[in-house]
Design a protein around this nucleic acid. Structure first.
Length: 278
DNA sequence: AACGAGACCTGGCAGC
DNA sequence: TGCTGCCAGGTCTCGT
């Protein structure tokens, strides 16, 4: 589920909780990626949610006394319930508000996180090492070019590195490289400045398009089934091949290919994304 | 400094 | 039907 658009969609869905006060916090299973702090109930009880922001794939919930970090990992989902419901198997964490609304984290694989970052979240271990936001102005062709010049890893691996730029997950790495006509196995440092410019442009537009699509599915997102926002999306390459065969490229008709990079699946069109300047 | 592999977990599905 | 193995949207940590 959670690539950047899902996280942002989740954040927007929680906005109705702003200015609501916490009645209680329930930790059913603290063993996520890092343990949920046991003192969270005392920290949050009686405190009011003042704002919601996002950094990379972290949701920052700003309370009177500090910031709670929420990360969805691979399989996490946060639901806003209008009233309490019986928890299901993987419902690990609730924040119950005095008006009866409930923020509930469901995460089968438990790669997600719920952490207390105090009143200086930008200095938190996990946040202070992050690269620029892809949609902000400081993520430029020049920035990318300067920061991959010494890196021989494949460009697809590089753009998924959160120290370089945040928020580009496995789906959008493949999609952005396709749209920029760059082969995913190209060594990062082999990209020209013009290619960096294309890639930056396409990362921004791919994520913007996906955000718009995610936003459009907001109404469904917190429904009983928690429909993800991807159902109406048409990927150029992601998921359009397996080991044996590929569906035709939407641009040129050549079969999409699938390879493994860094233990993840990568999809590309060998014709549109030819290996040049290696 | 940079890289690759391993680690954390559960559920779903293909193949036998 | 039931078992086995592989795959999945993330990202930190460790050994080289």
């Amino acid at each position: 589920m959670p690539e950047l658009p899902e996280v942002e969609t989740t954040r927007l869905g929680l906005v109705p909780l702003i200015d609501k006060t916490v009645a209680s916090v329930i930790i059913r299973n603290a063993s996520l990626r890092w343990p949920i702090p046991q003192n969270l109930p005392e920290l949050l009880q009686g405190k009011t949610l003042r704002a919601l922001s996002r950094r990379a794939k972290y949701i920052l919930a700003h309370f009177d006394n500090g910031v709670l970090l929420l990360h969805l990992g691979m399989s996490g989902r946060i639901c806003l319930l209008e009233q309490n419901e019986a928890p299901q198997k993987h419902d690990h964490f609730d924040i119950v508000f005095v008006n009866g609304q409930v923020l509930r984290l469901r995460d089968p694989r438990r790669f997600g996180a719920v952490l207390w970052a105090g009143d200086n979240p930008q200095e938190h271990m996990l946040l202070k090492v992050l690269g620029p936001e892809p949609l902000e102005q400081d993520f430029t062709a020049d920035y990318l070019y300067r920061n991959i010049r010494t890196r021989s890893v494949a460009i697809k691996i590089a753009v998924m590195d959160s120290h370089l730029v945040v928020g580009v997950g496995n789906i959008y790495a493949s999609e952005s490289l396709f749209r920029a006509r760059i082969h995913p196995e190209r060594p990062a440092k082999s990209l020209s400045k013009a290619e960096c410019a294309r890639l930056v442009t396409e990362i921004k537009s791919t994520l913007s398009d996906a955000l718009a699509a995610g936003g459009s599915s907001l109404r469904d997102f917190f429904g009983a089934d928690g429909n993800p926002g991807y159902f109406q999306q048409q990927y150029f390459v992601y998921g359009r091949a397996n080991d044996k065969a590929g569906e035709p490229c939407r641009v040129c008709g050549a079969p999409i290919k699938m390879i493994r990079q860094g233990q993840r699946s990568t999809f590309y069109c060998g014709s549109c994304q030819g290996l040049r300047r290696v």
